[in-house]
Design a protein around this nucleic acid. Structure first.
Lengths: 258, 258
DNA sequence: CTTAACTCTGTACTGTGTACGAAGAAGAGG
DNA sequence: CCTCTTCTTCGTACACAGTACAGAGTTAAG
């Protein structure tokens, strides 16, 4: 099995990854001085991913960026999948720690907005895995901050976890739409409108795709696509959805407090 | 550029993909009878993806499964990315059409539950792209059904689109957690509990990862992980989150109707 | 029959992750 | 000091990916 997986993992021993995530340096060194550190490799990976996409983060590419032979990277990182895990955790350190005074609703909003920005600053996060087997330090700390935002408002532990999960899910889903739209514009060199103007006549030539067969979808799709462009529409979905979710949580909370 | 992308696309002309999606047969044939149809290739891809993962859907693999040389697949499908698009749309035909009598809340619930099952039946959908540039017939029809569920309850067009987006985002996010958990169990041959029992001592040896540094996260993480296993926990998050979202929508709807 | 269109296939190119083994650097023990 | 052990670095090589290209063979149109 080779693999450009971005997915599996889990069959391997988690020990090494945990040590790398948490920065355990290990016993004193004996051989020649390393040219690099694991952090160098991780930073290089992040730089390349930010500039391009996850596909740009190849072992060879990262090595070239660091002026090192490809195989020497395996000194610092067990493999590509593990590098991605380290990148994901490292980049999460950029997320701000929410100020403590806020109420749960303002705090959750701030967290969601920060995550939204975060996904736009590092779009490759959306391509990478969601659920990782082992939490890194920054992921762990961020989870702690998220929970602190909704602590003591009357939810039980499992509900708290669920609330965080659904808010993050909302952000991820809408950010993905937003980023995909932006990527499409950049890749095709056309704006949304131009792209659709080009695709529309092809679709129009197909009887089965007639708007009469999908009246609602055609109307709503046009409304969502014409008023705004797709990118700002995703932003609207995000804010609208967040308001709905928070309202839903609020209903539960006030019911509990009564 | 080669590419195991699962992502980009958009630079290419959408004409061919649209024709394939909507089943335009084209002008009468002149050469030798084709051994296969595009639908055969799509079905083979789905079979392989269901049995394994998206990684199993390689041109060579699909060709072998069909008893054909790899290159001949390019007669039926422009490339791997397009095959994935066709697979995604085709599999959506399995989604049930909701019965018309239901109220919007019951209808949305049914849609969400169906999508949840759907992701579990075809987990590779979670690895594949979300937003596609061009809608296929089944995707289009499904979108129509989704909209019909919430038509006429007082939302404007953009809001209707947003509601569908956030419900789908919720399902996708929680289903992904659920499926990843199941995959981890299958890949490692360990249950959640066994896996954590193996990983825990490693984490315990790291001072920075002490539970005292992350009191909430440790407590909630344990509660969420111990009471249920991770898979059923994701199911709980799904149902809990859906209820919250629906409550939030309900608040908006009743406010509008007042 | 000729010709044009179409399917099918083998070969080959580029690019991927990474296993393996050799070469060399630096500290540990004598 | 030398020797040994450990560690880093690197070149080579393998299996696998997508797919460009060109040729061979098949069918229907003219």
């Amino acid at each position: 099995m080779s693999g450009v997986s971005t997915e599996d993992d889990g069959g391997t021993d988690p020990r090494r990854v945990i040590e790398l995530l948490w920065g355990v340096s290990g016993p004193p060194r004996r051989g020649p001085k390393p040219k690099l550190t694991t952090a160098d490799v991780v930073r290089a990976g992040i730089t390349l991913a930010d500039a391009g996409s996850l596909d740009a983060v190849t072992i060879r590419h990262v090595a070239e960026h660091l002026g090192v032979s490809p195989m020497s990277l395996y000194t610092y990182v067990p493999g590509r999948d593990e590098l991605l895990e380290l990148m994901i955790d490292h980049v999460r350190s950029e997320l701000p720690t929410p100020e403590p005074g806020l109420g749960w609703r303002a705090a959750l909003t701030a967290i969601a907005e920060a995550a939204w920005d975060h996904f736009h600053r590092h779009p490759w996060l959306l391509e990478a895995a969601t659920t990782r087997s082992v939490l890194g330090p920054h992921t762990f700390a961020h989870y702690e901050h998220e929970l602190r935002a909704i602590d003591g408002i009357g939810l039980d532990d499992v509900e708290m976890d669920s609330v965080i999960t659904i808010v993050n899910g909302l952000v991820r889903a809408t950010a993905r739409t937003s980023v995909d739209a932006a990527r499409l514009v950049r890749a095709s060199g056309l704006t949304d409108l131009q792209w659709w103007e080009r695709a529309a006549p092809v679709l129009a030539g197909i009887p089965a795709a007639d708007a009469a067969n999908f009246p609602l979808a055609s109307r709503v799709g046009q409304a969502a696509g014409e008023t705004h462009n797709a990118a700002s529409d995703a932003a609207h979905s995000f804010r609208f959805g967040l308001a709905r979710v928070l309202d839903g949580i609020e209903a539960l909370v006030s019911e509990r407090q009564r």
